[in-house]
Every structure is written in structure tokens, then in C-alpha cells.
């Protein structure tokens, strides 16, 4: 084969920095693919990078990869609640693994056991799943201190997408929002809390208007995808394709450690800037989980009704979590 100079457009809706999955694209995936292509093949590869929505916003990335505006896109599946309804399964099983590596292991096991999850990207949206990523453990920051879940009754709490039902079950009032809007909205009282992992809570400065950060442990969520346009993928030389697939998987493999590091650094950072970090009591946590006990089954059935293998995926994931040795605070059953 002749040596080719390849250019790939890669993008994400979130900015490079506060969002770990984007930072790992920019700091790991891109340079690693470049390096390996240069060293191991006769080709060269360059990336045009458009993060922070410069090419496509968070809710447009899947479509932009599908129609070829982006060659490779990284996005949170949470912004595709209809198209990738079932792929949000970690959100439907809250209080799962606290350790992001453990969580990602269970998510990967589920993808491997139910090939439909991977095939859906290709069959419906003309893209290849290169690797998964996720968010670190979710907690709750509020403008005011609180003790029991009952204190959250009627409190307005911001969140994005499929995690909003966690709040509804607790009696809080969910407000759909995006990270960039969070600061002003917390400051002005549009809502009084944000359901957010510490890295972003720190990165977006939410501790300034909303300094009470309660460690609830909804779990790490493996819900981010790195995908590549199918036609573009097919057009690349075999050896380059191989490298992209391998680095995509390596991106996924390092995501657990990367998210864990961010969780630790985020909590450390929040402590340093003077946020008040509190622990939720074990009973309160179990009570919250109990209130959500029917949630996984409910979502499985909704997915089934949409022609997706909902029951199969939810059962597989719950079993996969158990297989990692992590114990859920309640026993979720999916019939």
C-alpha cells in the first residue's frame, strides 16, 4: 500500500478539561494513535480537534458522526435518551460500583454478553464503537446543608438526563440543566443543588454558590462512548484501522483509573477550596436505594416495549456487578 497522510476530525460537546472523557481523548487517544501510526505504519495521521461543541454539541455528536461531519466523536449517551435509551443502563441501576474501574468492568462485561449493544451503533447509526468511558462516582452538592433524605423533599436539584429519576424518587424536584448553566443557576436559586461527580463540581466551580457536598455514592457511570464513522473507518488502511481499534480499547481500559484519579483529585480539590464535604449515613443511603428498588425493572420493561433487549441487558448488568464482588445496598430484581 502507498503511504497516506490521513486527517481525522475528532470532537466532543464538552470542553477538554473539566470532562475527563474528553481530556482522555485529547491527552491519550489522539497522541497515542498519532504516535503508533507514525512508528508502526508507513502512514501519518493528523487530527483536527473540536472539543467544547466547536463542531457539534453534546446532543449532536452521535448524529454528526453518523453523517460524517465528525470522523470520531466522544459523547455521553445520556444526551441520547431516545436513540440510545437502553445504553444508559448504568443510570437505571444506581448505587452501583463506587470504583470506576470496577464499574467499567461490569459495563464491559454487559456489552460483551449482549452484542446488540455494540451492534446498535453500526446498525442504526453507521458508526463503530471504539471504546467506552464514564463518569466518576456521583454525589450531591447543595447550597444548604441537609441531614436526611426527607430534607430534600421539594428541593430543586439540577441534573442532566437519565439520572433525574433518582431525585424524583427521593421527592426532590428535578431541573434539567447543563453544566455551563449550573453556576449562575445555583447562585440565583433556579435550583439549590446539583447531582454531580466531584471533578466537574470542582471544575465548574459549583462549590462557590453551593458549598455543601454530600457523598452519596450513586456510583460510577460507564455511559460515555467513543465512536467512529463507519465509512471513514472502512476507508482507512488495515494497519491504521487496527491501531485505532486497539487505542480505542486502551482508552476504555485506562478510563477507570483515570476517573478514579479524578474522583480523588476532585474531592481533594473541593476540600482545599473549603467546600464542606459530608458523608451520608448508611441508613439514609439504604433508604434512598430502597426507594429506587423498582427502577431497574421499570426501565427494563420500557426498553422491551421499545423493541430493545431491556430485560436481558439489565439482568446481565446486575449479574456483572455482582461478579465484580461489589454488593448493591438493595437487591434489584428484574423479571
Amino acid at each position: 500500500a502507498l503511504a497516506e497522510d490521513i486527517t481525522l476530525r475528532i470532537g466532543a460537546g464538552h470542553p477538554n478539561g473539566p470532562a475527563v472523557y474528553v481530556a482522555d481523548v485529547a491527552d491519550f487517544f489522539v497522541p497515542e494513535v498519532k504516535r503508533r501510526v507514525a512508528e508502526e505504519t508507513e502512514h501519518t495521521i493528523e487530527f483536527v480537534e473540536g472539543y467544547g461543541g466547536a463542531i457539534a454539541g453534546v446532543a449532536e455528536t452521535l448524529e454528526s458522526v453518523q453523517n460524517g461531519i465528525l470522523d470520531i466523536g466522544a459523547y455521553c449517551i445520556c444526551f441520547e435518551p431516545a436513540k440510545l435509551f437502553l445504553h444508559n443502563f448504568p443510570y437505571y441501576t444506581p448505587f452501583g460500583p463506587q470504583d470506576a474501574a470496577q464499574g467499567m468492568q461490569a459495563v464491559r462485561a454487559t456489552y460483551d454478553a449482549v452484542p446488540w449493544l455494540t451492534e446498535q451503533f453500526t446498525a442504526e447509526y453507521d458508526q463503530v464503537l471504539l471504546g467506552l468511558h464514564g463518569w466518576d462516582n456521583y454525589h450531591l452538592g447543595t447550597t444548604d446543608p441537609w441531614e436526611t433524605v426527607a430534607d430534600l423533599q421539594g428541593v430543586k436539584i439540577g441534573g442532566a438526563g437519565p439520572n433525574l429519576p433518582w431525585l424524583e424518587f427521593a421527592g426532590a424536584v428535578p431541573v434539567q440543566s447543563t453544566l455551563p448553566d449550573g453556576y449562575l443557576s445555583l447562585q440565583t436559586g433556579v435550583y439549590n443543588g446539583w447531582l454531580m461527580f466531584p471533578s466537574a463540581y470542582l471544575g465548574f466551580k459549583f462549590y462557590e454558590p453551593s458549598p455543601y457536598y454530600t457523598l452519596i455514592g450513586f456510583g460510577a457511570m460507564g455511559v460515555n462512548a467513543l465512536t467512529m464513522n463507519q465509512r471513514k473507518f472502512d476507508s482507512l488502511p488495515e494497519d491504521v484501522r487496527q491501531i485505532i481499534v486497539e487505542v480505542g480499547r486502551a482508552y476504555e481500559d485506562q478510563s477507570g483509573a483515570s476517573n478514579n484519579a479524578r474522583q480523588a483529585a476532585g474531592l481533594e480539590g473541593l476540600r482545599e477550596v473549603g467546600a464542606e464535604i459530608r458523608e451520608l449515613s448508611a441508613e439514609a443511603r439504604a433508604g434512598w436505594a430502597q426507594s429506587l428498588v423498582s427502577f431497574p425493572n421499570q426501565q427494563a420493561k420500557e426498553a422491551d416495549s421499545r423493541g430493545m433487549p431491556g430485560t436481558e441487558v439489565m439482568k446481565t448488568y446486575i449479574a456483572a456487578v455482582a461478579a465484580t464482588g461489589y454488593e448493591m445496598p438493595v437487591e434489584y430484581t428484574v423479571e
Partner: peptide
């Protein structure tokens, strides 16, 4: 520009449609 760069008419028009729908769809 998108058409020339990507060689895809579909991508060129979808830049129009996607952006029209998303660009100002924020409450601010």
C-alpha cells in the same frame, strides 16, 4: 466549505439543519 472539505453533500446540508436546531436552543 463542508461539502468541499468532506466531499459529502449530506454532511454539507446537515451542518445547516443541525445548527439551525441547536444554535440558539438555550434559555439564555
Amino acid at each position: 466549505g463542508v461539502w468541499f472539505m468532506l466531499g459529502s453533500f449530506e454532511a454539507a446540508v446537515s451542518i445547516l439543519g443541525n445548527t439551525a436546531y441547536e444554535a440558539v436552543r438555550k434559555d439564555v
